[in-house]
């Protein structure tokens, strides 16, 4: 969509702890279709990073190929970005993370990118618990090639072309749960109030934080027969509860009734507070999350919100025991053992 964004900003727009305004977290103008759910997700990422007071240059944003993977251009313009190869963002992100553990990694992918061509890489990034936020902008179709069904399209759901999808859908949140993801959430691009705190929690979480965001494709999959259109999703939403993200240093002021709420302290000291809508949900139980997803599905409802969290998980670096100094910052003296060591080695090979 082509339009002009006014450069005017309110003279007293708020600034965050680092002195940045929200504008400092914005990117280039979006070229996606007007009303695309993905743009709302970009806006939520901007809002979350602003509120978290993240230095934009300390974020690396990575994506694969597709409409969703275009979006990193549209947020965090002062961050390095990497629009890689279709379905291969997880490996590039893993390598980048190995090289520099001190940056924040934001991965953006789509349902084609993660549930089809990149299914293998997605699952292995999950099981390695790479420290990153991994957002799937899930619209159930291939937008950039004009609306073919994707692997997350529900059985019987029909896109604009009208043919009902005959194949079983892949639920990426369930798969992430089964493979050991340490943070799993689902949201809806139209629900910014839920999405922003989820993104903040995902970024603060240490380990692989997965958010499946249902994000309608206004052009090819927003018709009445689609289960990923705005109308259907709005009518069939159920939330695990209200999620609040309370940053480190800030007091938890809201009061929650015992038993209906759950507070989880992240490793950086910030707190995720969930006011549970369903008392059945146990945030630290994969089984509970998997069961609830199924139960709501049986009721033809989409369960959104925070589904599972393991705040004590070890990320890839901790699992393999790499140095605290980022590998990319090691000096030549630390990397190269020198001739003396070779002399000894040569002796042992004679």
């Amino acid at each position: 969509m082509t339009y002009l964004r006014p450069s005017f900003r309110h003279p007293e727009q708020p600034i965050n702890e680092l002195g940045f305004t929200r504008k400092d977290y914005e990117g280039a103008l979006s070229t996606l279709c007007a009303g695309c759910g993905h743009d709302s997700i970009s806006a939520a990422i901007v809002q979350a990073c602003f509120e978290l007071s993240i230095a934009p240059h300390k974020v690396a944003k990575l994506s694969g190929i597709g409409c969703s993977s275009k979006t990193p251009t549209y947020f965090l313009g002062n961050s390095h970005g990497f629009n890689s190869v279709h379905g291969r963002m997880p490996s590039v992100a893993t390598g980048a993370n190995l090289a520099n553990r001190d940056l924040i990694y934001v991965g953006v992918s789509g349902d084609g990118d993660s549930a089809s061509i990149g299914m293998g890489q997605f699952t292995h990034a999950v099981r390695r618990n790479v420290n990153m936020m991994y957002v799937v902008e899930n619209n159930g179709c291939y937008g950039l090639t004009k609306g073919q069904d994707s692997a997350t399209a529900d059985v019987g759901s029909a896109s604009k072309k009208g043919e009902p999808n005959p194949f079983e859908a892949i639920d990426l949140a369930s798969i992430a749960l089964q493979l050991g993801a340490s943070f799993v959430a689902r949201s809806f691009s139209g629900d910014r109030e839920q999405l922003v705190p989820l993104i903040k929690a995902a970024i603060s979480h240490r380990g692989f934080a997965f958010i499946d965001v249902i994000s309608p494709c206004v052009t090819f999959n927003n018709n009445p027969a689609s289960t990923k259109g705005y109308e259907y999703v709005r009518d069939h939403l159920a939330a695990t509860g209200t999620v609040d993200y309370v940053p480190f240093k800030q007091e938890i002021s809201a009061s929650y009734a015992e038993g209906e709420s759950k507070a989880v302290t992240l490793h950086d000291g910030s707190v995720v507070q969930l006011r549970k809508a369903d008392p059945e949900l146990d945030l630290n139980s994969r089984r509970s999350a998997l069961r609830l997803i199924k139960d709501y599905r049986a009721k033809e409802q989409i369960l959104t919100g925070l589904l599972y969290m393991d705040e004590d998980s070890q990320d890839l670096h901790e699992i393999i025991g790499t140095s605290k100094t980022p590998l990319q910052a090691l000096t030549e003296a630390e990397l190269c053992p020198g001739q003396k060591v070779l002399d000894k080695l040569n002796d042992s090979l004679r």
């Binding site: 890689s84 390598g95 980048a96 993370n97």
Partner: peptide, 9 residues
């Protein structure tokens, strides 16, 4: 892919 990601970084 990992090699490229690490080298990029």
């Amino acid at each position: 892919g990992m090699v490229i990601g690490a080298s990029w970084n």
